[in-house]
Amino acid sequence: MEARNIDVKSEISCQHLYKSFPGMDGNVTEVLKDVNLSVAKNEFLVILGPGQCGKTTLLNIMAGLDSSDSGEILLNDVPVSGPNPNLGLVFQRMALMPWKTVMGNVSMGLKFRGVSKKEREEKARYFINLVGLSGFEKSYPYQLSGGMKQRVGIARAYCSDPEVLLMDEPFGALDAQTRYMMEEEILRIWEKAKRTVVFVTNNIEEAIYLGDRIVLLSRCPATVKAVYPIDLARPRQFTDSRFLEVRQKIADNTDLAL
């Protein structure tokens, strides 16, 4: 396999995004209100926000799965108008196909694009290996633990070779122990296969541990409240005094229950 650390990657930005949903009783819920952000090439950007604030809505719009009421998403200065092979999405609730094996799930994007079976399996195997699941190619999702399922989700997003990876609380459903491990893992994978990453979380430690930069969202309707560059060297330590300093600074500015 060729080296996967290609230098030139994409940047993605959101410009004046608005989104609201019609409620049951006729009035509308405003979910996104003038959201602006831009992500640099190969940057690991974390979006931090409280539950139900509109993070999933934002990410779905960025991935082209949903449309905004106004404003636009620019991927390398081109507006995003629908699902795009250059945008890989990792879902909060895994969203693996129960009837597909690990191999089938990881290679499905290539199958949709008509890549031959041999080629797509070779490529999928590389990413299955990268996320540490070699040997489980033939397993079905129900046979995997939560952490393993999300590894499949990550491999699947990688396998279509997107320039930007969008991750929606990928570790939200995991137990604390597995979560720490997966946080280390995602950095390891990212270092080996650099992409532009937008990582959504509601966990402040996770955000500081992972991000090059943190975008803090307000409660619903979500707006960008603040942006924090994190210039701590990796691997970061949760107990490091500078880590705790940053944590305090962000915590003072959030409505997150801490």
């Binding site: 991935a63 699902p83 092979p85 999405l89 879902f91 609730r93 969203a95 196909m97 994007g109 949709f112």
Partner: peptide, 19 residues
């Protein structure tokens, strides 16, 4: 959610139905 997942992987309408 599964339909979304397949859409984000680039499935067209026919593939969404079949897969």
């Amino acid at each position: 959610l599964l339909l979304d997942a397949a859409r984000s992987q680039g499935a067209n309408l026919r593939q969404l139905f079949k897969e």
